[in-house]
Each structure stands twice: as structure tokens, then as C-alpha cells.
């Protein structure tokens, strides 16, 4: 058994290492806050970048991240035209509170619900906050886990870098 096992592993590693295609945003259904089901192919921004972040109402660093992004969002739009999409992974315990929390915090991002973590799993997200930058083809250009004060400056640098590179 072990002699058969090793060649398969080696073949698989060689095969997989040949992959060079860019990682794409997976096609998964998510819901709008009013219950409509949409596919993630709608995560586009007229040729400009999308900043996609996973969050939850029970995740302290996530809410700090969204508050920090809310403060700089107008400037980001002026400078780069980026669109922020925030995907909540709250399950039915707290997903119905999401519209109230979003409005109460004054967050003006596009908000979607991933109630059973289908998109989270498909994007290999372990724990929120986890952020991605996507281009208009849905290619994932960059990602980052966690959040602390000041990380939003790093995010803007990355957005500017990819914007200027025409990615």
C-alpha cells in the first residue's frame, strides 16, 4: 500500500505545482440583507477594484475594522474608486440583526449574508476578519487576516499599488 501511495502523492504534487492560473473568486450564492439570493459574480465594480472583507457581529476586531474603513471610505472612493463589500458570516442566531447594526454604525458598504459559511469555506477563510482585494475579472490579488489599528493604511497602499498597476 505504501509503495502505491507515494507515487500518487508525488504525481499530485508535480501536477499541482504546474498550476499558474490566478486564483478566482468562487461562484457561490449569498443573500442580500432583504433576503434576495445572488451569486458572487455580482461582486464587481465597473472596472475598478473591490475590497471584500468577512466579518461577524460577534467578532470584535471585525467591527473595529469596519469602523476604521467607514471613516476612510469616502477618501478611498475619491482616490481609487474602490468598492467595499462586507460579507457577514453570522448564522441565523444574529444574521437578522445585521441591517440594524450596519445602519446604526453608519457603514455604507455593500453588505451580504453568508449564513451557512458557504463562501467562507470556498475562499479558505478560517476566522474573520479576513480581507481580499479583487479586480474586475474576479481575480484575487491580495489577502490579509486579522485587524489592528492602522492596518487600513496598509490596505490603502495595496489598493493603490494594484490600481496603478492596472490589475
Amino acid at each position: 500500500m505504501r509503495t502505491a501511495f507515494l507515487p500518487v502523492i508525488i504525481l499530485s504534487v508535480i501536477t499541482l505545482s504546474a498550476f499558474s492560473q490566478k486564483r478566482m473568486l468562487p461562484l457561490v450564492n449569498v443573500k442580500t440583507t432583504d433576503g434576495k439570493t445572488i451569486k458572487t459574480e455580482k461582486f464587481r465594480n465597473n472596472g475598478k477594484l473591490v475590497f471584500l472583507c468577512f466579518w461577524a457581529t460577534w467578532c470584535g476586531p471585525c467591527k473595529k475594522e469596519l469602523n476604521a474603513l467607514s471613516e476612510v471610505y469616502d477618501d478611498w472612493i475619491k482616490e481609487t474608486g474602490v468598492k467595499i463589500i462586507a460579507v457577514s458570516i453570522d448564522d441565523s442566531r444574529s444574521s437578522s440583526k445585521v441591517p440594524s447594526i450596519v445602519s446604526g454604525n453608519g457603514w455604507e458598504f455593500e453588505i451580504y449574508l453568508d449564513e451557512n459559511s458557504d463562501l467562507k469555506r470556498a475562499m479558505n477563510v478560517n476566522m474573520p476578519p479576513h480581507a481580499f482585494i479583487l479586480n474586475d475579472k474576479g481575480e484575487i490579488l491580495w489577502e490579509h487576516v486579522g485587524f489592528k489599528e492602522g492596518d487600513e493604511d496598509q490596505y490603502l497602499q495595496a489598493i493603490k499599488r494594484f490600481s496603478s498597476a492596472g490589475r
Partner: peptide, 9 residues
């Protein structure tokens, strides 16, 4: 759920 600008119930 009722949501307005700056508040939600």
C-alpha cells in the same frame, strides 16, 4: 428590523 440613516431597531 427597521433601519434608517444612523439607527437600527
Amino acid at each position: 428590523n427597521y433601519s434608517g440613516k444612523g439607527f437600527g431597531i
